[in-house]
Structures are given as structure tokens and as C-alpha cells.
Amino acid sequence: MALLLGGCGGPLSALDPAGPGTASIARLWWMMFWGSAAIFLLTMVLFAIVMLRPNWGARVSPLRWIVCGGLGLPALVLPPLAGYSLWTGEALLPTADRDAVRIEAEAAMWSWTFRYPDHGGAETVDILHLPEGEPVEIHLTSRDVIHSFWIPRLTGKRDNIPGQVNVLWLQADGAAGEEGAIEGTCAEYCGIGHAAMRFEVRVHPEDKMEAAIAATPRGDPPRMRTELPVPAGLPVEPLR
């Protein structure tokens, strides 16, 4: 438990929010965690009691056991949980009226290409620059197979699927200038280079975005990429 509460950090931790998306999901997680722990304990205690004290449970009729446990307990827990979760989900959706910055993330085996139409249309590879405190709409596409764009510290993942454009809304608060504090990864298995398909996230104040993008040399490999053994047969150029 101490491990659980203490060690929540890390560049890919979903429990260490750096934006409103992950913050709301982490809130949902902790609610569910404590609720689940309580229900688990309740079940185990009931099992212990019926095994050790046979007469205690016999006072409750079988029908009541089934109705209270099988219908009552879920009826008590599920509607609020599902309601809260759907409400959280609505808030995560990209909405048309938000004045969001647009960034395109194109996945290919096995690298990420990011384009910034709102910041001069430049392109970076495997390094994503985000404006601090601004809502961003990431337009996700794929050049070959299905990939999945995931920055656990900012929000949930969404797939890059060939033949369609998916849109993900996110926002990075703080962490500006902290190198290596936020990372992203491909979450959907996409072939032998899947493990190496990581990217680095750098957050800048809005007015420094364009300079930072322009200063990113192409082919500058992100920190974590070089430490992975490159799989045999990894092509230098993404497949068409």
C-alpha cells in the first residue's frame, strides 16, 4: 500500500497528473480504488462469517441474501459510479466551441511525426511540443498500421487508425521547461518496433512554442529511445 501511494510518479504515470484530463481520471480511479477495497473486504468478511459462524447467516432468508447482495449492492454502487464516469467522459471530449490549438500526430512504424499548423506549420519527429495551459486538439492519423497515442500524465489514449482521423483533446498545465518529466508512448501493438515507439513531451509557454519547434533538430533522438536495443530489421524510413 505504501508502495502504491508513494511510488506514483514517473514520466509515464497515469497517477501523476500534469493536466486536467489525467487529473479527472485519477480522481475517478481513487474513488473506484477505495470503493473496490471496501467491497472486496465486505465479500471476504461475509465469506469468513458464513464459514465460521454458520448460524449467523441462517437468520437471513436465502431470498434476502440474493436480493440484498445480488441486486441491492450493485444498485447502490453502480448508478452513481456509472453516472460520474459518463459525466467525466463528457468533459474529456473535444468540443467544437473550445478555441483549441491544433496539432497533428501522424504515426508510422515506428516513429511519430508532429505537425503544428497553428505554429508556422513546422514538423518535429518523436518530440512533441505543447503550449502550457492551452487546450490542444491532437488530430491522429496513421500511415500504416494501428498505433495509439498516449501521454499518461496528460489524458487517456486514443488510436491512430489508417483511413480515419481521430481527435484527442488535452491540456498540459505546468511542467514547462522540465526536460524528461512527461513522456508519451504508442500503446497499441504495432509490430517489432512497438517498444521503441516512444516520444518526449516538452511544454513551453505559448509565446515560446514556435522558437522551440524551430530549434528542434530533425532526427534528434529522444532520451529514452537510445537506451532501447533497436530491434533487428527496424527500417530507417517508415514503410509507405
Binding site: A82, G83, L86, G89, E90, L93, P94, T95, V167
Partner: peptide, 10 residues
């Protein structure tokens, strides 16, 4: 019933 109240196409 609850689902039909939500955003339909995003």
C-alpha cells in the same frame, strides 16, 4: 436511457 442523453457523434 442514460446513454441517449450523451454527446452523439464525438
Amino acid at each position: 436511457a442514460p446513454a441517449l442523453l450523451l454527446t452523439a457523434c464525438r
